[in-house]
Design a protein around this nucleic acid. Structure first.
Length: 493
RNA sequence: GUCCCCGUCGUCUAGCCAGGUCCAGGACACCGGCCUUUCACGCCGGCGACACGGGUUCAAAUCCCGUCGGGGACGCCA
């Protein structure tokens, strides 16, 4: 069996969105699974809309996700001459013809068809031109497009899609489509096929919106005398209102960049995206790259479109809850050293980073991450909810004040006493701090929880968190004592 | 409008091709409990779906037909 070769061919007219990312991921997995090659090809033939920012965005997005390619990026525009040559060859061999109809004429015909409620299809006016008529128009300099001539065959063109099964399309339903514009520029349908032939693509894995184009492209392969690749169309990603997701109509929440900026772990996003329309066949949902590659198969692709359930207004679940959950899962289970590398930029952005975290305070840094990560959902949480561990200026959650401070008139006094006990401890450990706290509570005849939760509020600013005595040891005696003595100031009363 | 595709819990899905083991399994979300100094994790439990109607069959989520619903494509965009 020949080498598996797949490609991801984005058009650089916007940032990489999750639909495109999903396509890239499936292609990548398929290549990896079969020891094949993944080709990145930028389809920039629409010069009007293509931008270099977009190309950078797509490449950065793929790189961040960890989706790698073996060849490219190739640029479709580099092969325009080749596309034109192919078109000319098709004309010479009778598979295509020049069409001199103007856009206005065609629009008029289309409108008539729409008004009559019939299907519009090009009427082949120019296909019936004699060679004299063609020559005359060419000499007159009449602009023309090149159209493919659909073979006059009975029956249907059929092919077997790896996901949707056998697809039949009657030949008479296929229009003589345009492959070269009147300005000489080749169109997608042609360029795409010519490039796939040159790049020796064996499997075309793309969105289901390409399904109806497939018969046309197969005709092109045949006319060009090339072997038809295997097609696998994947279900589409829909928004919560079930409309196809696109960068233009959905904004940043559907871009890969958005997830990068909102504290996602790249692999968590990949893991989530791959589950949107694919299942391994067993109950596994959390998979390592190796496991995913081993488990991946086109048979696991679902035919039904999948809804990407984001909700910008939800503070916790601003995107699909499952995506958040997966991210949180990886956050609390991945090797802490790897996590540290991801947290670093977040702390740097927040101005909380110090080089010591990679030097003599490395151990402390890793221990701290391991302690606090359990309750976090995104990497951003380390700099926000975890700020009190890395800085002395941190906000205090009003809920925490209300719950643990406001109810107790003497809380500042009690915490002051506790601070002194801590200061006097021979050793500042989880055990000694807990013992001191409980002893003080007993002496004051109050519940230990009052001191514990009050301390948590003052020392971390949070209503929730790890076990308090772990927190104390991590933050350290000096800072704990200082914060407790400044209780009134910290909680703003 | 025409053509094509799809239709299992709120969402992602397993099961469908090779009907019975499915009064439908898992995950997330939600609710309750346990744990506990808080919250989370974890564990236990709950809620919750075969779009509808016919047919075939001893037996249908699984096969057939129809209806309805959703999506996609209908460009000298990619």
């Amino acid at each position: 069996m020949s080498e598996v070769r797949v490609r991801f061919p984005p058009s650089p007219t916007g940032y990489l969105h999750i639909g495109g990312a999903r396509t890239a991921i499936y292609n990548w997995l398929f290549a990896k699974k079969h020891g094949g090659k993944m080709i990145l090809r930028i389809e920039d033939t629409d010069a009007e809309r293509s931008t270099t920012e977009s190309i950078d965005g797509i490449i950065n997005g793929l790189t961040w996700l960890g989706v790698t390619w073996d060849e490219g990026p190739y640029f479709q525009s580099d092969h325009a001459a080749e596309h034109r040559a192919a078109a000319n060859r098709l004309v010479a061999e009778g598979h295509a013809y020049k069409c001199f109809c103007t856009k206005e004429e065609l629009d008029a015909k289309r409108e008539v068809a729409i008004a009559a409620k019939t299907t519009y299809m090009y009427d082949r006016t120019c296909c019936r031109l004699t060679s004299d008529e063609i020559t005359a128009r060419e000499q007159a300099g009449t602009p023309y497009v090149i159209r493919i001539k659909i073979p006059d065959r009975q029956g249907a063109l059929s092919f077997t899609d790896q996901v949707y099964g056998r697809i039949d399309r009657p030949y008479h339903d296929i229009e003589d489509f345009v492959i070269v514009r009147s300005n000489g520029m080749p169109l997608y349908l042609l360029s795409n096929v010519v490039d796939d032939i040159r790049d020796r693509i064996t499997h075309v894995i793309r969105g289901q919106d390409g399904l109806v184009n497939t018969p046309k492209q197969i005709l092109l392969y045949e006319a060009l005398g090339a072997q038809v690749p295997v097609f696998a169309h994947m279900s589409l990603t829909l928004d919560p209102k079930k409309a196809k997701i696109s960068k233009r109509s959905h904004g940043e929440v559907v871009t890969v960049q958005f997830y990068r900026e909102h504290g996602f772990i790249p692999w968590a996003l990949v893991n989530f995206l791959v589950l949107l329309g694919w299942a391994p066949g067993d109950d596994r949902e959390i998979l390592t790259p190796e496991e995913l590659i081993a488990a991946f198969s086109l048979e696991g692709l679902s035919k039904a479109n999948a809804v990407f359930n984001y909700n910008k207004d939800d503070l916790k679940f601003f995107t699909d809850p499952k995506a958040i959950n997966l991210n949180a899962h990886y956050l609390r289970t991945m090797p802490v050293e790897e996590l540290a590398a991801l947290v670093k930029p977040e702390l740097q952005t927040a101005g909380l980073w110090t080089a010591a975290y990679e030097d003599d305070r490395r151990a402390w840094f890793l221990t701290t991450l391991a302690l606090i990560r359990d309750r976090f959902h995104t990497l951003l949480d380390f700099a926000v909810l975890g700020r009190a561990y890395f800085a002395d200026d941190y906000p205090v959650d009003p809920t925490a004040i209300q719950k643990n401070i406001a109810k107790h008139e003497k809380i500042a006094e009690w915490l002051g006493l506790l601070a002194s006990r801590f200061a006097d401890l021979a050793e500042f450990t989880k055990e000694t701090t807990e013992q001191a706290t409980r002893e003080l509570a007993a002496e004051l005849e109050i519940k230990p929880g009052l001191l514990i939760n009050g301390t948590r509020t003052v020392v971390t600013g949070q209503v929730a968190g790890p076990g308090l005595f772990d927190i104390l040891v991590t933050i350290g005696r000096d800072r704990v004592v200082d914060r407790l003595r400044r209780t009134a100031e910290i909680v703003g009363r």
